[in-house]
């Protein structure tokens, strides 16, 4: 597992209060991990904070799974 993936999963576990083994690449924040729309906004903010980057709203709309977040951050994060 990449360093980015590990950091993403740690944030998801903390913010959504879910078990670490449920946070798989394919897990959808809303459908599988119990997040609501406000939770996903806060998750994106936490990713921005952790990785020191900005995730524009139109990009955030396409981050629906853990894997989506990892992929975006590996490509765009300055601190990745």
């Amino acid at each position: 597992m990449s360093d980015v993936a590990e950091r993403v999963k740690k944030i998801v576990v903390e913010h959504l209060g879910v078990e670490a083994d449920k946070v798989t690449d394919n897990a959808s924040f809303i459908d599988d991990l119990g997040a609501d729309s406000l939770d996903t906004v806060e998750l994106v903010m936490a990713f921005e904070e952790e990785f020191g980057c900005e995730i524009p709203d139109d990009a955030a709309e396409h981050i629906l799974t853990v894997g989506d977040a990892v992929k975006f951050l590996e490509k765009n994060a300055s601190a990745a």
């Binding site: 406000l38 806060e42 903010m45 921005e48 900005e54």
Partner: peptide, 10 residues
Amino acid sequence: PRRVSPFFIP
């Protein structure tokens, strides 16, 4: 403002 949580108001 981008660091203000969506849970701040509720």
